[in-house]
């Protein structure tokens, strides 16, 4: 009974919205809005063919490579900069400026430096996604608890062991917050780099549909991007719950007290 109620809460509004959409397309044929049936039909037809391998997978691959590289660079750099006090003071204002630059403007710059290539697109994603992770990691490393740090020190936990057992776990809540920002930024940059200058990829294909007024196809592309965003968000949430279980548990205990 309770499960049924929960299911009702989850499904009621989405179903209602789809019904509304369907009803609104019943009467006159609207050029801009396809019927749900037409969209679903196009969706399978457009995206589950050869295009899946020529446009969808390469886009996702670039996104993954870019985001993973950005996270790796951000975390390694952040641990380094965060651990050395003078280095942090030296670099922080410059890094804050880089973070403040809206990442999409890097697309024309990197096209200029690297040409229209796959590595350019990956570089766009990296250069946009690295800042939230980097700056959050620096902040997290800086905020390692003094007593905990002393404890580790007295037990001879130094060097790499200190990073592995103390610094990284302690900074992980901030790092994950940075990763969350990076993921949504990465998706945006993937699309933009393909829309701005490309001959393949999700972003390119969707713009092509729009230019040729293939409206249901265009909508189906928007749906693909939406699904990609939702999938990434769910994977992230799953990973975050797993990695930060101790953190959420601790917060819960603190709040209850």
């Amino acid at each position: 009974m309770k499960a049924l109620k929960t299911l009702g809460y989850v499904l009621a509004l989405p179903v209602l919205l789809v019904l509304l959409w369907w009803a609104s397309t019943l009467g006159a044929v609207n050029f801009f809005v396809p019927t749900p049936a037409a969209l679903v039909g196009k969706f399978g037809e457009v995206w589950f063919g050869p295009r899946f391998f020529t446009d969808v997978l390469p886009s996702i691959a670039r996104l993954l490579v870019g985001v993973v590289a950005a996270i790796a660079i951000g975390v390694v750099g952040g641990v380094l900069i965060g651990s050395v006090k003078w280095l942090r003071a030296l670099l922080e204002p410059t890094l804050e400026f880089f973070r403040a630059i809206p990442p999409p403007v890097l697309v024309p710059v990197l096209i200029l430096l690297m040409g229209i290539t796959d590595s350019m697109k990956v570089a766009v994603i990296i250069s946009g996604c690295v800042w939230p992770v980097l700056l959050n990691t620096i902040e997290g490393v800086r905020a390692v608890d003094g007593v905990l740090s002393d404890s580790a020190h007295t037990y001879g936990i130094d060097g790499w062991a200190r990073v592995r057992y103390l610094v990284l776990p302690s900074a992980s809540p901030q790092i994950m917050a940075g990763v969350r920002q990076s993921l949504s930024l990465g998706l945006i940059l993937m699309v933009i780099s393909e829309m701005f200058a490309s001959s393949s990829g999700l972003g390119f294909t969707i713009v092509q549909f729009q230019r040729s007024f293939a409206i249901p196809e265009m909508w189906s592309g928007i749906v693909v991007l939406g699904l990609l965003g939702v999938a990434m968000s769910f994977i992230f949430q799953w990973a975050e719950r797993h990695i930060l279980r101790w953190y959420h548990g601790q917060k819960e205990v603190e709040n209850a007290a």
């Binding site: 998706l187 265009m218 909508w219 990434m232 968000s233």
Partner: peptide, 14 residues
């Protein structure tokens, strides 16, 4: 919420 806003670009242009 996780739908990237840039997905709306073609729609906005249209």
């Amino acid at each position: 919420r996780p739908i990237p806003s840039v997905a709306l670009i073609p729609l906005a242009v249209l």
